[in-house]
Design a binder for these strands. Structure first.
Lengths: 351, 351
DNA sequence: CTTTAGCACTCAGAGATGTAGAGTGCTAAA
DNA sequence: TTTAGCACTCTACATCTCTGAGTGCTAAAG
């Protein structure tokens, strides 16, 4: 992109002005604001050029200019300054990061809710396991003559349990037998490797504990499926309504519907590096997002899993501020997961 | 309430008409619709009476009448026919009830989402434990020289777990000791009975396993707190936007904000009997709900716990249909919990 | 006493009209 | 290349009118 310095400056001023006011920007206000000492007329001809290049759009003839998605893109890539978080902001973020790590799902959801509150945009949160998950160990705990608890732990250190009540009685010895059988046969297998075939063979070997094997293993399958499925959590959908671009229901309703019905998690590509990812308008895959933007960051959960957290809003968002906040928060989450105890983080973020 | 038969009939027709069309009802359309052969003029004077009694309201002089909350209340209490679910509806409801019982929280949430889809209203779901919950048993599972899993089971048969990693090593024997200590000292206690005092005393008795006791017990406390706290799940908030009364943002935004920020669960009184509860407009405690109605039903989870599921919508809702659906669904959930396996329910619901 | 027809009255909503203001593009001069 | 000037365009807002639905009241009829 070979834009003259002046064009760059003008584009940048327009975008930042528009991000703040949400109203089309006219040549006059630019001439007044910008450090460049030229008349509105000059700005006008530059703006006409920028529009011809596709970086600006005009809602109608007598309105000012509005950035196009490509305009935002070039702004994000080349023009935008890094935003330095203020001390208050880091403080708030650190406070928000003071959460206890319980169930993984809970943390994910909680993180989303917090981010939504902090940014005043709807948020989404999901996890992504890089590799295939397997069961590391089974434990069966007898609680009653006809009931026991299955405890399953994956190689990613996630623990799930279920209470099972049986129609028939059960001896401690049986349960022991079953337990060792499970641990020798079904550990270290991915979802694909647990075939009905294998289950049948093992069941026969188990003798009287026949039905129990399939009971436990199908719970294991459920767990693995659940973990690979990456359900996506959304929070703060109502935040949309506070932004001027969603004052009309025609604009707000489709997006809200999309977000509240579980959006397809495949549509959010995992940011590869640790830097936040920005998807502007039509860069989004999902139709419902074509008029909106997504900013997201990823964090390390440990054990080969990553989490993604992001916000959805109008294309007119303060990308600089949002990426700064999100990546700080994501970093904080990584720390949190790495050492369960959050370290003092009074330091400012250094780019 | 001593309303003449004719007044009752007129009120009923007005309400049902309004529920269908969402538009103020005029005397003419009533005269045409209703089975009573009187002229619009007569209807008018009756309507004037009904308005004076507080059952109808007039948006403005030249509009028709609209039911007041009291009008709905009398309709719900006295005038409304029981709605008989159609075969398709029972079918759909039964299909929706074909869900697997995993984690309790999951079922609660799932039920809410399903109800929202079926009714096209936002839904909420929560649980309520009648009595105090206690821990029934502890299990500690060693997974590594420096890590173990805490498994806790409540007297309400809820099982929760957590993986704990320690800075120091740990022997199997220590864990055994700890386990028996926990089971003898901390079972059967309510949240209030687990005092810091008790923890300190027991910790000393534990000797070297000092810190571990408090680790496990504080997890137990977390679990108990979590269960007593009744977090409320909401789903399908965006459904609001499809109803005419929420076309304007001033009406929709406060309610959506209320629902998406976690509403206070105390504001939803537990329906005492098994019949659905209806709260019309100002009958609601929460300010945000004063212009809306809530219909809810409760179901039996077992072990002294009940679940509540309900929908939120405009006061103009088809209460007959909603109560029928909700109570059918709630009954289904009760069955589901009672026997984990849903029985054939091809029968229609008998009042 | 109740019901009905007739009639004047009220008021929201849809259209039409006018105006103000912001912003533009073009042209010609600096 | 930049700038001032100017005619032009178009939205937003306010005002106005008109229409139609629905009412309440009154007086006559059952």
């Amino acid at each position: 992109m070979d834009l003259s310095e002046r064009k760059k400056k003008i584009l940048r001023v327009i975008i930042e002005h528009y991000i703040e006011t949400a109203e089309p920007v006219g040549s006059k206000s630019i001439a007044a604001t910008a450090g460049l000492d030229v008349s509105p007329a000059t700005i006008r001809s530059e703006m006409a050029d920028l529009e011809a290049m596709g970086f600006l759009e005009q809602p109608h003839t007598s309105a000012g200019r509005v950035p196009s998605p490509q305009g935002y893109r070039i702004y994000v890539n080349e023009l935008m300054d890094d935003y330095r978080l203020s001390i208050q902001e880091t403080k708030r973020l650190n406070e928000a990061l003071h959460m206890k790590i319980h169930e993984l799902d809970e943390v994910i959801g909680q993180a989303g809710r917090v981010i939504s509150q902090l940014t005043r945009y709807p948020s989404f949160a999901l996890t992504s396991s890089g590799s295939k998950i397997t069961i590391r160990r089974f434990d069966l705990l007898m609680v009653d003559h006809d009931a026991f608890i299955i405890v399953i732990m994956t190689d990613t250190n996630i623990v799930r349990n279920r209470l099972v009540r049986l129609p028939t009685d059960l001896s401690e010895a049986q349960l022991q037998l079953l337990n060792t059988l499970l641990n020798t046969t079904f550990t270290g297998l991915t979802l694909d490797e647990i075939t009905p075939e294998l289950m049948r063979v093992t069941s026969h070997a188990a003798g009287e504990a026949y039905g129990l094997i399939s009971l436990v293993v199908s719970f294991a399958i459920e767990v693995l499926e659940g973990l690979e499925q990456h359900t996506i959590h959304t929070a703060g959908i109502a935040c949309l309504l506070s932004h001027p671009e969603y004052q009309s229901l025609e604009r707000a309703a489709p997006l809200m519907n999309y977000l509240s019905g579980e959006p397809d998690s495949d549509l959010f590509p995992l940011p590869e590096d640790n830097f936040p990812e920005i998807l502007i308008g039509p860069e989004n895959v999902a139709d419902a997002l074509k008029n909106s933007s997504v900013v997201m960051a990823s964090y390390d959960i440990g054990d080969g899993m990553r989490g993604i957290i992001g916000v959805v809003g109008p294309t007119r968002m303060d990308y600089a501020k949002l990426t700064a906040r999100l990546s700080y928060f994501a970093d904080g989450l990584s720390h949190l997961f790495r050492q369960t105890e959050l370290p003092d983080r009074n330091d400012h973020k250094e780019e």
